[in-house]
Amino acid sequence: MTTKDIIKPENLVYTKSRILNDTPMHYCPGCSHGVVHKLIAEVVEEMDIQEDVIGVAPVGCAVFAYNYLDFDFQEAAHGRAPAVATGIKRLMPEKYVFTYQGDGDLAAIGTAETIHACNRGENIVIIFINNGIYGMTGGQMAPTTLEGMKTATCPYGRDTAINGYPLNITDLLVKLEGTRYVTRQSVHNSASVRKAKNAIRKGFENSKEGKGTSVIEIVSTCNSGWKMTPDQSNKWMVENMFPAYPIGDLKDI
């Protein structure tokens, strides 16, 4: 049997979700954002909720998420996505509302909005991309930058005496009464991608039940910012990011 015989519609087992449109994504080659966008698209398609989902895009690399995902979107000011999502969800409680935020957006400038949306138990999904660096603005220090990690604004490595400590905000969110499901995932190999997708699906399903906020942190790479190849970045993430941000469910009630 030749390859040509195999490539027939009836044999198709995996392809791009129709919810992810044909616009090529602007992300750097190998960027984790693309994988997570793809998973959101797959979940929205599988749950058949394209008409009922409203996304909130952040400021940062994912600012243009709305150019790729084929449903209604609002673009929030830096850090304000959880407040924007609160406004949407409170006024349209029947919709699935999610935010997509990076570490600077969620854990620095938007810390208050994040904590209070979670504390109120807003029935939204927060997808949190933690790659320990500011990608869009050119590789500056993030709240989640690891100790010793070099960035454009800590070129000699993060010094905790000057810059404080890496902020594990997801651990903080676990303690809030309003969060229902808090998990930390990654997308660096096919098994982790499947798990991350299940987590995103669970978040969307939770929001329908109205029992609180679901937070899905995706420990991610920024190979351009980290100045490594995509494959090296994945390996570096496993060795260095995972000990600080361990993978797994933190809260599931």
């Binding site: 198709l12 087992v13 995996y14 979700s17 994988v35 698209a41 997308v187 096919s190």
Partner: peptide, 26 residues
């Protein structure tokens, strides 16, 4: 080509959603 078993691992990890995978039982 002969080595492919259609496991879709390539598709899952692709950040640009550019891989479609086909599989048959021979």
């Amino acid at each position: 080509e002969d080595a492919c078993v259609g496991c879709s691992a390539c598709g899952y990890v692709c950040p640009d959603a550019c891989i479609s995978v086909y599989k048959v039982k021979v």
